[in-house]
Design a protein around this nucleic acid. Structure first.
Length: 571
DNA sequence: TGCTAGTCAATATA
DNA sequence: TATATTGACTAGCA
């Protein structure tokens, strides 16, 4: 039985002996052949290749190879006579004098080696080969597979030692050579070597037939057994300790939209933001983290050369090269506003009514449910903690303004969004990243109101009734007694017409002003709570079906202006 | 601890 | 059924 060797990063491939016999299951064991049809003839003789030990993912690329390693010999690479791609002139060759670069060989590991002169490993080839055209290679591979009815699965397992999904990704979205790590180049070199092998297809067909026969035999032996093509993957590693992978979460469209939006706001969310999102979307922080990691990577390498794979690229932003420079831009208030808008758009696109009874079936019930109490918690008003209820964040479309609530995500959310409202004060938590002074005091948002509307019925009557509602700029905001006592400033923003230039300038100044304000000591300047400085918002179950509390509403024009401005700010 | 790169494998889609 | 998508995971690194 072939020795099981773990590949770095997951898929367990058979030992790929590149020299000598090929102990591959499935019929590539003819002497002299190489797994996946790699041929010893014509192509550079390769040393044994094993994936059994860890290897660095971030090896230095050829540019880092010292000049002293250059050989005066002409490049060997893959002979064009064998169909190899014309390689650019390269000063190095796969020569016996070539220093050993393969860390595995340096370390004296890597399985049996063929006698004779040292030859480059796949890694060395990956390091030494320059500028393989991955697009050309994958195109050729795809054509060959298609023409010969060979599946990605078979090809991947037999030739590349990769799973079908990985092969699919490699073939459909090949990264440019220069963007690949050495490890990432390996599959392309294997593909190229496979292309060079005149018997490549023949071998794969043979393997395919053998697998088919084996499958038939198994079926004949045990018709009741679930016969899977995968059962031939005898080199598939058993689940270690019986523990399988964690079952993947299936995000709802709304959750995805929320994540994409959050990503657009901040591709590198800090812990507090991640926790905030996890709370909002009722996902684990690990899941949120995974999603951001995946999304960064996948945005970095879009599925198509001219674009990306995301259907919502309008809100996508490529991650910057400097992760530490991020994390400043996530504003829960903004996030919620934009998300509510986006969800409304989605619903419209789907032909659903724009009014959101529950923000869609895919959205966790707690999402958006804790706007009010968050603010109250920060106000230190535990009385309101039990209010529950929710603020309907649904934004009205232009044409259906009258029939639903508008959202005050502003004056309230500025406090409400504070994750510190979850009960842990900033003082307890510290200013983790120095992006905001601990502030026990509430504040009013200087952000223009976004045409919200209180919809929590319990505030209109009952224990919430003590709160005073104030109309600012046509927007209903709520102030508690505490709020008033603390003499918080309430900025009145008059809707004055401005020309576009002035408007943009104003927005910029406003933003700068906000930034300045956030740097002020909290004791003298109420600062807007940020998700990164505040943690653990408490989610109350929303009461979306509650009676909407109509309030004097701003004009539809004002609503639109506000949302437009926010979008422009975002842009 | 969090990042990137690479990958698996479940699931969706063609 | 084959291929594409994508959440989860790993190694290596800083």
């Amino acid at each position: 039985a072939p020795e099981k060797l773990m590949r770095t990063g997951g898929y367990t491939a058979p030992p790929l002996y590149l020299v000598g016999g090929c102990p591959l299951p499935g019929g590539l064991a003819a002497p002299g052949c190489l797994p996946g049809g790699l041929s010893t003839s014509g192509s550079p003789t390769l040393p044994s290749y094993t994936t059994g030990t860890s290897k660095p993912h971030h090896m230095k690329l050829p540019a880092d190879i010292p000049k002293s390693m250059e050989s005066p010999l002409p490049p060997v690479g893959i002979p064009p006579s064998l169909g190899g791609l014309p390689l650019p002139s390269h000063p190095m060759s796969f020569d016996a004098r070539m220093p050993i670069l393969d860390p595995l060989r340096k370390a004296g590991v890597g399985g049996p080696r063929a006698p004779g002169p040292a030859a480059p490993s796949v890694y060395e080839m990956a390091a030494l080969t320059q500028d393989l055209d991955t697009q050309v290679i994958t195109t050729k591979i795809k054509e060959a597979l298609l023409a010969n009815n060979i599946g990605q699965k078979l090809f991947g397992e037999a030739v590349l030692g990769l799973s079908q999904g990985s092969v699919s990704e490699l073939l459909s979205k090949p990264k440019p050579w220069h963007m690949l790590s050495i490890k990432g180049r390996e599959p392309f070199i294997r593909m190229q070597l496979w292309l060079n092998d005149p018997r490549n297809l023949e071998k794969l067909q043979l393997l395919k037939n053998e697998r088919r026969e084996a499958s038939k035999r198994r079926r004949a032996l045990d018709p009741t057994a679930e016969v899977s093509q995968d059962s031939q993957d005898i080199f598939q590693a058993p689940s270690p300790g019986g523990s399988s992978k964690k079952q993947r979460v299936l995000f709802s469209e709304e959750q995805k939209e929320a994540l994409r939006l959050a990503f657009a706001l901040d591709p590198y969310p800090n812990l507090a933001t991640i926790e905030f999102l996890a709370q909002e979307l009722q996902l684990s922080t690990r899941t949120i983290t995974n999603w951001f990691h995946n999304h960064r990577m996948r945005l970095k390498h879009p599925s198509s050369p001219g674009g990306g794979s995301s259907p919502n690229r309008e809100i996508q932003q490529p991650p910057t090269n400097h992760p530490q420079g991020q994390g400043q831009s996530f504003d829960p208030i903004h996030f919620r506003l934009l998300l509510s808008q986006r969800l409304m758009e989605l619903r419209k696109e789907k032909g659903l009514p724009p009014t959101l009874p529950g923000l869609g079936p895919g959205l966790p019930p707690g999402l958006f449910s804790h706007f009010p109490h968050l603010g109250q918690q920060e106000l230190g008003n535990p009385r309101l903690d039990s209010l529950g209820g929710g603020l309907d964040l649904s934004m009205k479309g232009e044409n259906d303004y009258d029939d639903a609530s508008l959202v005050d995500e502003d004056s309230n959310m500025s406090g409400a969004m504070s994750p510190s409202g979850g009960g842990r004060s900033e003082g307890e938590d510290g200013d983790r990243d120095g992006r905001g002074a601990p502030s026990p005091l509430p504040r009013t948002s200087r952000r223009k109101p976004a045409a919200p509307q209180w919809v929590n019925p319990s505030w209109a009557s009952g224990e919430g009734g003590k709160e005073r509602e104030v109309i600012i700029n046509g927007v209903c905001v709520m102030q508690t007694d505490d709020y008033r006592l603390r003499e918080q400033e309430t900025v009145r923003i008059e809707p004055t017409p401005v020309d576009e230039a002035n408007r943009n300038r104003s927005l910029k100044e406003e933003q700068e002003d906000e930034n300045e304000e956030e740097q002020q000591p909290a004791s003298t300047h109420p600062s807007s709570p940020r998700p990164d400085t505040l943690t653990e918002p408490v989610t109350l179950q929303e009461e979306e079906s509650s009676t909407l509390q109509e309030e004097p509403t701003p004009s539809q024009e004002a609503v639109k202006e506000e949302t437009d401005e926010v979008e422009e700010e975002e842009a």
